[in-house]
Structures are given as C-alpha cells and as structure tokens.
Design a protein around this nucleic acid. Structure first.
Lengths: 338, 338
DNA sequence: TACACCAATGCAAGCGATTGCATAAATTCA
DNA sequence: TGAATTTATGCAATCGCTTGCATTGGTGTA
C-alpha cells in the first residue's frame, strides 16, 4: 500500500488536514511545521493520490483532446502532432495533463466526450476540428463545459464559443490573388473533405478572389477529396484530364501536395514550369519537396498553444466570457510557383 | 451537482450498493431490479464519476504514453502518430483511455512518470523509446509497475521487461546486403541519435553485413544526426565531400530521407543513377518522394497495437511474466536503388 | 412445523484527499 | 491583567463509488 497523507501526518505529529494544507502551501500553517511536514513527506516518499485529490477537489488538472473521427486518417497528417505539441507545451507549463480521445467513429467520440464530461475525467476540452454536422460541440455548449475549438464554429453563434483559428478565407483569397498576379487565370482547387469548415472557408476565399477579378468560376476546376494521400493523386488525374488544363493549383494541404507533385512528375508535367502550386500549412517537411513547395504557414504550433491558453483561462475563470483568437498566417514563397 | 449513485438508488428504491452492483452487472442482483435500476439511471441521466470509481477501485482504466524527451523533435516524425494510432485502437477496444506525457526534458519526464505511478493516475505505461542512459525504465522496474517498451531494453536483462520491437539489427543487415547485391561497396550510413538503441542496432547490422562481405569499415562513411530534418541534409554534405563518395546510402528514417533527397537534388546528384538510397520505417508519405524511396516497412501501427495488447495483459494478470514480441519487417523496393 | 440454506439486497466502512468550523495558544490592546 | 483578536492546528464531514459482511425472506427438506 502506498504511503498516504495519514502516514505523513503521524510521522510529523500533525493532523492530516495540516499535511493537506502544507501541500497546498496554505499561509495558515507556520513555516516551522511546514518544514517538519515536508521532511516527513520526503522521508516516507509521499506522493499525493491523484484520484483522491480529484474527487475531493472536483477537478483533475487534465485537459481532454478530441480529434476528428477520422483520426485514423488525420494522424497521417503532421498537423495533429504539431498542434498537440503546442497544446502539450502550454499544458505542461500550467501543470495540466493531457487525456486523448481514442474513438474512431462519430458516435464513439461523442460517447467518450460524454464520459469525460459527466465522469469528471477532465477539466476542459480542446476540439481539434470543426466539422459541419458535429454533435460534440452542441453537447459541450449545452453542458456549459469549458472547451475551445481549433477552427471556427459553424451553424453556431460565434459569440457562444471560444475558438482559435486562422483566417482561412483570407488566406485562400490571398493565395488565389497571388497566383493571378503571377498571370494565372486557370486556377484549380484541390480541397479537403467538405465536412470540415476549413475546406469551406478555403473555397469561399478562392471563389471570392476569382469573382473579384471577374474570372468565371469553373466547377470542373474544383475537386474535393477526403484522403490526404491518394486524394491528392486522384485530384490531379481529374484536373489534368480536363481539356483546358489549369495552369495553377491550390492544394488544401502540404501532404496532399506531395501526392500532387508525385503524380505530376509521373505525368511529366513540370512544376513550376507547366503548372504552379500553392498549398496550406507549412508542416515541417514541406520544405523538403522537390521543388520546394510554396505554402501558407498557418502556425500550427501557436494554434495549439493559444487554444490551451484560452482553455485554461476559461477553466480558472468560468465567467470570463468567450474569446476569439485569430492566428496570423504567412505565405512562404518557395519554388513551386511561376 | 451531477447525479450520483445515491440519487439513482433513491429513485429505484434500492441501496447505493445495489446500484453499484448493477453497474458492474453482478450476478447477485436479480434481473428485475437490474431493469428497474437501469431505468432510473436512464431517467436521471446518470453517469458514474470517474475519480470516485478510480479511488475505490484503485485502478483508472487509463494507460500512460511516455514519449522521448525530444518530443519536440520526435513529433515531427510520423512514427509517433502512427504508433499512437496503434495504441489507441487497442486501448479503445479494451475500454482504456490514454494519458499523454507532456514533459520536455528528461527530468521533467521522470517526474511525470513518478506522478503517474505514485499518484495512481494510470494503470500501466507504454514507453515509446529505448535510450541508452534512461532512468525511467529502471524506475518502473524497481516499482514493479506494469509497462511495456516499444524498442529493446539496453543494459537491462531482457527477461526483466516486456517489449515489442523490430529486429532492427537484421533489418539493417539485410538492407546492407541488398545494396551489396546491387553491386555497391561504398555504402554510407546516416544514423539517428546514438542515444537510441535502434540506432545502435542499425549500425551493428550495417557493420556486420560489411564485415561478412570482407568490406572494411570506414568511419567517415558513418554519420549520426539528431535532427530528423536538417540532420539528413548535413549528413549528405558530410558524406558527399569525401573524396571517394559512397555510391549508396542507408538512412535511419524516411523523413530524413526527404532531406537527403532534397540536398542531393540541390547538388545535382541523381538518385538512383548516381547514388542509391534505402531507409527505414515506411511512413505513409514515403511513397510520395521523387524518386519513390525504397524503405523497410517496420509496421509501426502493429508495434503500438501489440505493445498495448501486452500491456493490458500484464495489467490484468500481473504474474504472467514478461513477454517479448518481434514485429516482422519487410523491405519495400521502390525506385531509389540501383 | 422447524430448520437449514440460498438468493437478493442493505449496511457501513473504506479509498485518500480537502475544507468549513471549532478550538487552543499566542499576541495585542486598553 | 483580562478581554479581544489573531494565529496555528485539529476534528470530522464530504467527494462518489466499491465491497465484505449482515440481514431478510423465501424455498426445500425432514
């Protein structure tokens, strides 16, 4: 049996409550006894029991991380590790632990979230995605449970939730304008799963830019694919078999771009000579493609870091009201555009 | 205040203990009252409190995942997401949750592990690395705490720990032999951080193969780098400035290979015409390099899955003794060798 | 009918902490 | 010097659930 607070109390000749207060470093205990108690703790090798604390406290010092149901696929993308790294850093700084969702289907995940919330397993939740018909967020709102969203709420009043996001609309618009500036008019768009809000924002930005420039939208230039890897390749086939091939491509994701580049190489289409490419995220390996890809750095790490900051804030001061943080993005020009 | 077991008890006109037994589906309760209690739970929207359960049970149904201290760097590598995916899948199947370590330095991590163990925060631990002078594993052994290692113990009797690993020695040996079979004799080796056991095993295998073939070892053909990304590039510079350039390269890691390919391209060295490359892991995007890389598939997902299986086994039957699982590897021949 | 026995449930003591309130001792002030 | 106040600590209830043992009522058996 592990050593408990009572053992320490006995050893230091005080009551358990005193020991507890020493742990909390309460000012109500004199320095002298504090010292004595601390010594006893050392001698006995005492470590507080986490569950007992949580039970009494009604708080766990743990944050839940909820990943998209397609975690299977999602994890293929360095976006998630990187955002978790940001979360992890801040969480550690503030003394919070991380609890990971493991479910695969939407129902499984909702069930898990319910357990986290009702079971008091975590103090707050970071949602790593915003999808269109999501049930998790409404649940959390209804329960008035602290959470932050990485992404943007959809079909829900923005003032009702705290979220951290990029301005994906603007990013996509800028990128499109950039391509037009380089002289492109036939610009293809390879988007991700349309269930994700980010995809929608990208597309809107793209469309807006074209409309502003009085370039008619062509539906056959717009392709969506769920799978990050094959998706990129399939999309290329689709787009390149159009008679009037696009001369530039906007790709939703760097990893997809690897597939796109790969496929283009197989087709003997040269980048950037024959076709220009821009994508989003700037994950670590993006600068390792050939040619090096031009991409929008969305500062993934910051997304995680900021989100965690907001979340912890919200946990500590529940009445503080919702916040909205936009992490800036930046176009990284490399070699895939001309 | 959330609804507790007492509320349910009152509602169903039974004692709390009965409710508890219904939750555990004890055979000591009649079907009739079980039904009644279940109904009451439904009506009240009851969900058991996780911490209370854990406290009473002395078990949390949670597994700890401990990542290398260089998580900062590590997470850049798709190895970790993928192994976690394997862990996650099995954990979910068995009703376990996942708790993630967040520390960055070795001391921080050791401290965290101590908290997990002493604090009863997790029932078992998956160690995602085996490094040379590791303090975590000795601690876990000393505490007789259930854990499995992904990798291989070093400086510790293999019979004392359960671990899941590839035969990295053999993999490296095979790869080297494969290159020799293709006619190469000047084979360079770009290894990872020498603190990791996998690096040592790779090197040993490489050396053994050369020795068997009576090819003298050249220290200047062996380069080690910590950083997965820049490392690859630095290493190439080192190796390619040797007068007698190697004609083939063994690279520790697919992501590193991206850097290597990138750098080689910059140097106008053609792969595989001028130099052949083999690497390890076969992460998802490896087939998206140009040229597609030849690599050893180490079945990362299975590593995680099997490790979790072993761990849960160990938790449920502590006296079962240590196990050792070797996950097979497979050379995936693509286009980077000639 | 009385007794043994079993099945179904309840009682109450934990699990290891926290915390409001009470108490005792020390200090201040008039 | 005694009352008031402050400071330092202890008592005991509580968090929500589990579980060993006791209890109750019903059934089978002689």
């Amino acid at each position: 049996m592990a050593v408990t607070i009572k053992d320490v109390a006995k050893r230091a000749n005080v009551a358990p409550s005193t020991v507890s207060r020493v742990i909390a470093n309460s000012s109500r205990i004199s320095e002298k006894t504090k010292e004595r108690v601390r010594e006893a703790m050392k001698e006995l090798g005492y470590h507080p029991n986490f569950n007992a604390r949580s039970l009494a406290n009604k708080s766990t010092n743990t944050l839940g991380i909820v990943m998209p149901n397609s975690a299977k696929i999602a994890f293929q993308n360095p976006f998630f590790p990187e955002v978790i790294r940001g979360i992890s850093t801040k969480a550690y700084q503030e003394g919070y632990g991380l609890y990971l969702s493991t479910g695969q289907t939407e129902e499984e995940i909702l069930e898990e979230v319910k357990q986290m919330v009702y079971g008091g397993r975590v103090d707050g939740i970071v949602l790593l995605y915003s999808r269109v018909n999501d049930k998790v967020m409404p649940f959390l709102i209804e329960q008035d449970f602290p959470f932050v969203l990485i992404g943007r709420p959809y079909n829900i009043d923005e003032n009702e939730v705290t979220f951290v996001n990029n301005d994906n609309f603007k990013a996509a618009k800028t990128v499109t304008e950039y391509l037009m500036l380089l002289g492109h008019e036939r610009i293809g768009f390879i988007g991700g799963n349309l269930d994700y809000v980010v995809t929608i924002d990208h597309m809107k930005g793209y469309e807006q830019a074209l409309t502003n420039a009085h370039i008619p939208l062509r539906q056959d230039y717009i392709v969506h694919h769920e799978e990050v890897k094959e998706g990129g390749q399939d999309a290329v086939i689709e787009l390149m078999s159009i008679e009037e091939r696009p001369t530039a491509l906007i790709v939703a994701d760097d990893i997809m771009t690897f597939g796109v580049l790969r496929m283009l190489a197989d087709m003997n289409v040269h980048v950037p000579k024959d076709i220009s490419i821009v994508s989003f995220n700037n994950v670590m390996i993006s600068e390792l493609s050939s040619p090096k890809m031009t991409t929008v750095d969305i500062h993934i790490y910051e997304l995680g870091f900021e989100a965690t900051k907001c979340l912890i804030n919200k946990i500590k001061e529940p009445d503080i009201g919702e916040r909205k943080v936009i992490v800036p993005h930046r176009l990284i020009k490399r070699e895939s555009c001309k």
